[in-house]
Nucleic acid binder design. Structure first.
Lengths: 111, 111
DNA sequence: CGAATACTGTGCCATATGGCTAAGTATGAC
DNA sequence: GTCATACTTAGCCATATGGCACAGTATTCG
């Protein structure tokens, strides 16, 4: 239940860059071409393409080429993995809180 | 509603390393000393301390020193920021889905 | 006090990351 | 066919990252 490490690694790394996070945000509104996406950022196309490749390599987006245009689309189910990890942390924390509350409720168990 | 970039940056960067993610997991069960935490990882203490500092610098943990022992504790509310970002993405995506569904429901609006 | 413990500080290293320019390829428009 | 468009490839560069060894410092234990 925690051996997703490699996948999560890639996902978090991909999301750790503000450019890539913004791309994800924009793709949330629907697929877009590399050129259209890139025009929103102050970096050169080759640099931008690296981000696109990183996002694709880590599964956050899917891209397809039609003619000379490459279109990017968000893979929403992959964001769910990140969500899942956070949910796990919450669960762990809540289990602990429950135990602490039990201690308070039954002080005879204490120490 | 998306200008958290700097904070999110740090949070995602902090979570992008498997060692640090595991530290967060362990601290979810309760505070622990640097030494105890470090003993679970195959790296040297100085290397491990870097991770601790990164986690603290990005606000994911709080540490206090008592005598020669430094104790680390999770700052759960900061994980909530990551959660918030994911929730925003979901909202954006759902808005879009709603619009698409409206198109299907009222085809006279199409194209 | 002297030794063991628990970090902490320094400095070095290899690799990864994110950016750039310059040049190339493939497709669509005229 | 020629030209503009939309990437794509290649190579370079500075900085960041994650790891190490080794040498401190500060507490606690006997």
């Amino acid at each position: 239940m925690a051996q997703y490490s490699e996948e999560l690694d890639g996902l978090f790394v991909a999301l750790a860059d503000p450019t890539r996070r913004e791309v994800v945000r924009r793709l949330g509104r629907g697929p877009q071409s590399v050129g259209d996406l890139a025009s929103a950022f102050p970096i050169t196309l080759p640099s931008f393409m690296k981000h696109v490749r990183t996002l694709e390599a880590n599964g956050l987006i899917r891209t397809t080429k039609s003619g000379r245009v490459r279109t990017c689309a968000l893979r929403r189910e992959r964001l769910a993995l990140v969500d899942g990890w956070l949910a796990e942390q919450r669960r762990i924390w809540e289990d602990r809180t429950d135990r602490l509350e039990r201690l308070v409720a039954e002080p005879e168990e204490q120490q």
